[in-house]
């Protein structure tokens, strides 16, 4: 009897908790009936148990038949793209952090010690892990969204020829733009969240001593960084979309433009409310040059509007280019 319990346990441990007890009860009852049937035909108990359990097969496989939802995070449709994007992202993060490391060591004029190299390796490791985690997260969302929309399409039977993707040879692919955009967005995201001090101006005085003046406003960091991250997340989703669906239909393109606009609005709000740029940058850099100090004051005060304007210009040009291509 212990063997039956072990078999049932080996099966139900792979099932969702809410159905385990029910399946366990039913399976036990069925197994016992099957064993009785073997015993009626003259088989001894031990052999009857063995024959029954073997006829049910591998409990893991049996469990898989009870589960009607996909048990994978990223399915076969997206897996090759997931691998491609992960490789690109890892390469981009490594290159970005290496360049930043060399620039920083060059400006610091300090001998390269074990601690700096260790910090560099740790940043590559944590940056790599973080970026791949983001890639996995976004692909999981895509997989689930695609699954839901596929089921919806099947139910509605609403497919039409307008939804067919464009042929690669005829229309402009947005995949390369998506890849480049994704790389830069992710590098910026990781540096912003882990190495904010690298965005600094370095003053070398007396030939050896260097002072760093942060470009960003560290005092209100917690406020603006959150908005930056939200905006970057929207941006990452857009770039991913371009990589996965490089020839978007008009409906998809409209959704993408909406996401880009949301991302832009958030960044403009972050700049206008929390002033993420260090207002004292030029006071510390060039304390005697009033013109530069005033100019920087103007930039800090209106940076959100400048970004908003150029962002909107970019989105408009992309939309015009898309419409032209479509025609």
């Amino acid at each position: 009897m212990k063997l039956i319990e072990r078999y049932v346990y080996a099966c139900i441990r792979h099932l969702p908790k809410n159905i385990r007890d029910d399946v366990s009860q039913e399976l036990t009852s069925e197994i016992e009936t099957m064993i009785d049937e073997h015993k009626v035909n003259g088989t001894n108990e031990r052999e009857a148990i063995q024959m029954t359990l073997e006829s049910l097969g591998d409990p893991k496989q049996l469990a898989s038949q009870y589960i009607d939802k996909p048990t994978y995070l990223i399915g076969p449709l997206y897996y090759p793209t997931f691998i491609m994007v992960s490789k690109i992202v890892l390469l981009a993060v490594t290159i970005g952090l290496t360049v930043a490391f060399f620039v920083r060591t060059f400006l610091q004029t300090q001998p390269i010690g074990y601690s700096i190299v260790g910090e560099y390796l740790a940043s590559i490791f944590s940056g790599g892990v973080q970026s791949v985690a983001w890639v996995v997260f976004i692909f999981v969302l895509l997989e689930r969204a695609d699954d839901a929309s596929f089921k919806k399409e099947i139910t509605a039977n609403s497919w039409s020829v307008d939804q067919l993707p464009e042929l690669p040879a005829l229309k402009k692919s947005l995949r390369s733009e998506g890849i480049v955009g994704l790389i830069f967005t992710l590098i910026f995201f990781i540096l912003l969240n882990t190495r904010l001090e690298w965005f600094s101006a370095f003053i070398i005085s007396n030939g050896t001593q260097s002072t760093s003046i942060p470009m960003f406003n560290l005092a209100s960091k917690n406020d603006w960084l959150l908005l930056f991250n939200v905006s970057l997340l929207f941006s990452v989703v857009v770039h991913f979309w371009y990589i996965i669906k490089p020839y978007p239909t008009p409906k998809q393109f409209f959704s993408l433009v909406t996401l880009e606009l949301i991302s832009l609005v958030i960044i403009v709000i972050a700049f206008q409310i929390y002033s993420p740029l260090n207002p004292e940058l030029f006071i510390q850099l060039t304390p005697t040059n009033q013109t530069l100090i005033d100019l920087w004051g103007q930039v800090v005060g209106n940076a959100g509007w400048y970004i908003g304007f150029f962002g909107l210009l970019g989105i408009t040009l992309d939309s015009i280019s898309y419409i032209k291509n479509k025609r």
Partner: peptide, 15 residues
């Protein structure tokens, strides 16, 4: 029909 195929199928059809 294999019992291991039928038992889960019955639950799916019920669902």
């Amino acid at each position: 029909v294999e019992p291991g195929t039928l038992y889960p199928l019955l639950r799916r059809l019920e669902k």
